[in-house]
Design a protein around this nucleic acid. Structure first.
Lengths: 191, 191, 191, 191
DNA sequence: AATGAATGAGAATTCATTCAT
DNA sequence: AATGAATGAATTCTCATTCAT
């Protein structure tokens, strides 16, 4: 009970303030529990943060895996990956930014390594989807890990840029990224 | 004299620690000046940081602009943009990450806005190059700002992934991104 | 427990050093608590100071109000007001001086306004006693607020002057002020 | 030249900020001189402050002394003393407050003693006028030093209270204080 | 006479964490 | 399970003063 309230409040505060400026005080306040309770449920700030990140990654992975099990074409799979990531990046912009980027220094190095690994795991998960495309001969022979990392970064950065400018429909944005990712910027890129 | 030493030390410390964990104390220590000197030359931590970011953006813009003045083909221009960004992201990985991503909360909002604007300015600068391609009919009819933002994010994220794994040559990485950006992932993306 | 110790120490330090030169460090030291504890119990220096001032005013008001309830003559009431203020100004000279005069700049303006209001409230409280005298036809028809403010200032300033010169008995001082305040300086001031 | 500019600026800044919050930086800025120049003309902050206070006291003493030399009646002399002090307290309220009250701790004790002496000198100067009244048999047989100190405090405190409320004419205020000081508050103070 | 870069001691405040209950 | 008082190390920033020029 308390634990859920804490996690929920922590998501809010970390989203609004970023890791370093988020304070355990405020998380406790928003969760409506005493500060000591945070330390009953979590060993410390870093581990509380890690819990959120883990849950976040797990959720998006779960969503995508559902699509994979549906036996969709690679085309469609890529579209879905884009869509799920867009949902995350557009609807939970701040949190997503922190989850994907606040892997910087100043976090207990032990926890930091775990956080980095979570991101790498996610990249590898996406990379696996692409590898399948390569095996089917639909995808260019490129380093899929790099491609996956690049795609995430592209989506994240562009969504960050879009932030607060609701000028494009979700539909349009989705198509834009699909085109860029599958066919690139140039017309007649005969290749 | 002192000012240069401070900026130099600040780059180091911000790179290693990120904005929030970087302390003015340590910057002073590394710059070999008294703590008060930081505040003689800069109004505060946020503005010191801003100065670095500004210089960083200015330098990459200058490098790219030199190429633009050389009247290269769009193809070549895109290659150069990739190369210059790679140099930044691979050689100054930490700093670049901070400059491009530490625009999060917890920085004096006034300065934060300026920092965000610097990034937007850079995106628009790159976007301008792409727009020219569109006018020439070589580039797809897409939102160039979004494309520029996406490219930066892709490069940044992928380079972050590569970090510490010197398994690919700079040459190879460059070609990888060029292909992805210009022609996409799919092989017969007839469009 | 800690809170009382802090308030007690704060009174000491503010009295000795004045608001600006009093340091939170020293207050903590004298209270025998950690510096952080000050901020656990009070939002900051200004609010800690305000707490003291509030308590100080409340105490003198309470003392005077007790006399008022005793149904004394105006004469006697004025004597008591003088006596209670003298007690404050002579026995806690430094603190009183700060409470009544350190309402100067350099304090968080929000708190400063509250502090000024506390003083004004005290003046109005005394003024109320004088108004009653006017209604009874015993007192001159003067602006009672101004008179109350003047009386406080007169007592404070004269006590400050007396400071460290224990040449007059409390009794004598009291009679001096009673005469001046009720009858003025001139002999035969027939009016 | 520079010296006058500094004194002028210092009056401004000390008035606005009080002694402790006034900074040499700002004084130099407003005086349009380099910070180092302050230390060329004055040994330090405390001595600069002392200079102002000295000049301030000297001026009001000079004004009153002019009246004394005019051989006015005690009545009229008291009126003039009230008027000159009112001018100071109403027109330069902040500065006057600081000059008369910022004799608190945190100023180099050597200079502090001189400042206290300046105030005592002024009290004794006024006291001298009252003593003359006593000799003439017009004034009650009271401690004139205490009376003088009280009068100054009364004027200062009441003017502070009036601050920002321009509801009474200068003329009226003057008469009010004259009545209180000479005849007291009670109507038939037959004495 | 005047400058202004540089200093360093101190100040307020923040905050993750501990621990007795 | 939960609390909340207490901590103390770390951090940003201020400012009178010095000194070489």
């Amino acid at each position: 009970m308390s634990k859920e309230k804490i996690i929920h409040a922590a998501i809010e505060v970390f989203s609004e303030k970023g890791y370093h400026r988020a304070s355990m005080d405020e998380i406790a306040l928003r969760a409506n529990v005493a500060k000591g309770s945070l330390y009953y449920h979590f060993p410390g700030k870093a581990q509380l943060f890690k819990t959120l990140v883990k849950e976040g990654f797990q959720e998006i992975i779960d969503r995508i895996r559902t699509d994979l099990n549906a036996n969709l074409s690679l085309d469609e799979q890529i579209k879905r990956i884009i869509r799920h990531n867009l949902e995350l990046f557009l609807d939970s912009s701040n949190l997503a930014h922190i989850v994907f980027n606040e892997l910087s220094n100043g976090i207990e190095s032990e926890v930091l390594e775990e956080l980095k690994q979570l991101k790498v795991d996610y990249i590898h998960f996406l990379s696996g989807v692409l590898e399948e495309g390569k095996r089917e001969g639909v995808l260019r022979d490129v380093d899929c890990n790099l491609a996956a990392a690049g795609i995430i970064g592209m989506l994240e950065s562009a969504c960050k840029y879009l932030d607060n400018k609701n000028e494009m429909s979700r539909e349009l944005i989705e198509r834009f990224f699909y085109t860029i990712i599958t066919s690139g910027l140039l017309i007649n890129s005969g290749e």
